[in-house]
Design a protein around this nucleic acid. Structure first.
Lengths: 349, 349
DNA sequence: CTGAAAGCGCTTACAG
DNA sequence: CTGAAAGCGCTTACAG
């Protein structure tokens, strides 16, 4: 009873029912008598039959697929945080019956409005940091094409579509509070300053809020602009040291910047955390392994991925979706001089 | 001239030609007069039209999609090496006109024979380390279902399907040669010993070959079995130290093991590389950041990903495919005591 | 609870 | 170079 590429018609013949009944039975329609359904499903299993997704999709105008668009225009390799989100995204999607199509994009690429138009995906998840000016335009184009999408990122006033992200303002606040509680007073900031990046702006704002609450006015001379790379973190500290304005702590916009900064400090014979405390942002696997271990602000990739999938699936299914933020968490290691109860190396990697 | 969800028929009406001609024009058929083709393509662009993949796939029995199945049964998070391969895989696939469907699997899961049977993918790329006994069974099932697939991994005698991987034997040889050239004589090995994992067996064999070439018989008492985790590397070194047999170098089957091993040595006040040299395998981003920087054997993820995509696409298109291996490369950092010309931190991350 | 029938939107022999 | 027509394999109103 071998059929090479069985169709529902083959099963119908074998079961002695109509093809329509086979289709119903395989979709667990209550319209089909249980006995009939069981028989049909058994035959399908025996034949190694699986519904042709193209045919089903053509009929139903669905693909049961989510496209995950990763973009990254920094000079580093694909951000590991996004990669680690891939894990929870694919798992959540699978649980809800969706496949995940992955595409790595340059921000300058066409943004594949066609994913939905071509019925390859029912909706998009957008993941990555980028220049927001350019970004906004693309989002508007997606919205104009009636593409369903959800963005990982902050709530931005007037931005088309839905988003879910980390509360970067709170993250920056947590980082700066930690430094203040350790007695640090002259706390610098290294990161994106421009409003090109609302993520980084929010981190900065949280930092500034904590300082002001402590009666300290953030000092321009302790701020250095840097993109997300170790090199830029390194160079930023060199600049800072040249300026000659003293500082006893640094809040870096990302872990990569923080790691570069720590290295620059060490190369300049400045002790971390003896002379200067350093806090990062992201908690990438590296953060636990550098020396000293980097205290940083963690975004929960698991929660984030789950929320994004839930959001896009709700969008696809026409249910209401709210943009939202999740709370970040301070991970204390050695780079600030706080007493560490137990060294957390995080997950291996 | 707005059409909500345009089909080729809408374009045909607008262009004053038949739907068949539209289909030909959009696929750049030479059968269509250039003028007609240009006109049709212009209209398609104006309408934001994209070919319905379900309909096209139903007709052609193709999905132009590759399924990437990542599995990992180690206790660590998804192996970063595989994740970094994702980059070159999606890019290569895109260049060849294929989408990439990603699925994270447990080795114990069903292996989605249905990806191809359901016409969701034209072929599979299998990525991950695993228990080979269990593995083999699944591969046989895939082959029995006429599923096209290519595996990242070693050439294994009698294994169904095609594969592409790193020459682990040469990698192990390079690592051990390096240690021998630095004057090390008592070189231990930490890693999988069982033949469950041909990858690790090959690494061990290369190591043993280098030793024997140098007139040294690999010593049982300097071998400790360990899975791919920092913890197991740490514990392995503790065991080794307890045994009391002296050693001046360690070759670890993976970077994670090596990093755990280095930490155990440091915790036991054994200097790395002063007393003991350590070499790892993989060159994960971490390797450049631990202290001392880990000398290790690098597998080129870029090349690997490209080769896997090329392989599966050839398989899909009925072209001949050869299983193959690529040469690994020794990355010298500080953990062995060799003179390092320039510190290579590799790519950020 | 089941069947006959229409139709989703394409691709491609076939005929001209 | 172009068109009319068949058909890919499903899902789902419609009728019974």
């Amino acid at each position: 009873m071998k059929v090479e590429n069985p169709t529902s018609r083959d099963i119908a013949d074998l079961a002695g029912v109509s093809q329509a009944t086979v289709s119903r039975a395989l979709r667990n329609s209550p319209l089909v008598r249980e006995e009939t359904r069981n028989k049909i499903q058994q035959i399908a299993r025996d034949l190694n039959y699986f519904v042709n997704r193209n045919a089903a999709g053509l009929r139903t105008h669905q693909s049961n697929t989510i496209a995950l668009l990763l973009f990254d225009d920094s000079d580093t390799k694909m951000n590991l945080f996004f990669l680690s989100m891939l894990d929870s995204i694919t798992r959540s999607a699978a649980r809800l019956g969706y496949d995940v199509l992955v595409s790595l994009q340059q921000l300058t690429d066409d943004w594949h409005i066609e994913y939905q138009a071509s019925h390859r995906a029912d909706g998009l998840i957008l993941l990555g940091y980028g220049d927001y000016a350019e970004y906004r335009e693309k989002l508007a184009a997606l919205a104009a094409a009636h593409t369903r999408f959800i963005i990982w990122g902050p709530l931005v006033e007037g931005q088309p579509g839905h988003s879910f992200g980390c509360d970067n303002e709170v993250g920056g606040y947590l980082a700066a509070r930690h430094l203040l509680e350790l007695g640090r007073k002259r706390i610098g900031y290294i990161g994106h300053m421009a409003r090109r990046s609302p993520e980084h702006a929010a981190r900065y704002n949280g930092y500034a809020r904590a300082l002001r609450e402590a009666g300290i006015e953030p000092s321009e001379t302790l701020h250095v602009s840097a993109d997300n790379s170790e090199t830029q973190g390194y160079e930023a500290v060199q600049q800072l040291l040249q300026r000659g304005d003293s500082f006893d702590a640094l809040f870096a916009g990302t872990d990569l910047i923080a790691i570069g900064a720590m290295r620059a400090l060490q190369d300049a014979a400045v002790s971390v955390p003896g002379d200067v405390s350093v806090v990062g942002f992201d908690d990438m696997p590296l953060a636990a392994y550098v020396s000293p271990g980097l205290t940083t602000v963690q975004q929960n990739a698991q929660l984030g991925g789950d929320a994004l999938v839930e959001g896009i699936v709700n969008l696809i299914e026409g249910k209401p979706v709210q943009s939202g933020l999740m709370a970040p968490k301070l991970i204390v290691r050695e780079s600030c001089g706080a007493t560490v109860v137990q060294r957390d190396r995080g997950s291996a990697g």
